[in-house]
């Protein structure tokens, strides 16, 4: 182990660019939490099963997709852009439709899995704006929750899906 060896990593997180020298073995989630203060993203296991650490990640200009940030090395995020649960709300603090639906439909109890669950749901709905309940359950099966039995999570994702679809249709209707 040579902890003196460091690699420069430049990553955009929630709209801010951070340049740091990190140990090559540093996981993205530890970089986020310990160097960048992004403690909204949490660690629930050490085997990439629980999904609590899920964030969105993409190339500087490309689309973002959900990743478990415990399964990504910080050096792999060099040049990437990352959105965490802390950067999901709009510029004026207005909640994302998924965040709002989680609140309205009581889709969280202790809230520890919630950041990861929300980020996975956001990605799921980008891929599939109108999922069946089974597709929601399958799509979130990489995120574990011990409190809710998932029932209200599924409801919340469906509610957010409907809200996002309505939002997407609005501009078209406006032009008619």
């Amino acid at each position: 182990m040579s902890s003196s060896h460091r690699v420069r990593v430049s990553v955009d997180v929630d709209g801010t660019r951070y340049v740091d020298d990190v140990e090559p073995r540093t996981l993205l989630v530890h970089h986020l939490r310990e160097q960048l203060g992004k403690v909204g993203t949490v660690v629930g296991c050490d085997t990439s099963n629980c999904g609590s650490c899920t964030v969105l990640m993409g190339g500087a200009d490309g689309p973002q997709h959900s990743v478990k940030s415990c399964s990504v090395l910080a050096v792999q995020a060099d040049g990437a852009s990352v959105t965490t649960v802390e950067g999901l709300a709009g510029p004026g603090g207005e909640l994302h439709a998924v965040q709002r639906a989680f609140h309205e439909l009581h889709a969280l109890q202790c809230g520890f899995c919630t950041p990861g669950m929300i980020m996975s749901a956001v990605d799921l709905l980008r891929d599939n704006p109108d999922p069946s309940d089974a597709e929601v359950r399958e799509g979130l099966s990489g995120n574990l929750c011990r409190c809710t039995g998932y029932q209200n999570i599924v409801r919340a994702v469906q509610s957010a899906a409907a809200a996002l679809r309505a939002q997407a249709e609005l501009p078209e209707e406006a032009t008619v």
Partner: peptide, 17 residues
């Protein structure tokens, strides 16, 4: 609806870690 949610859904949490 729960008062607790606002911080938990935005990542402004206070876990011991």
């Amino acid at each position: 609806k729960r008062k607790e949610d606002a911080r938990l859904i935005t990542g402004r949490t206070r876990w011991t870690d």
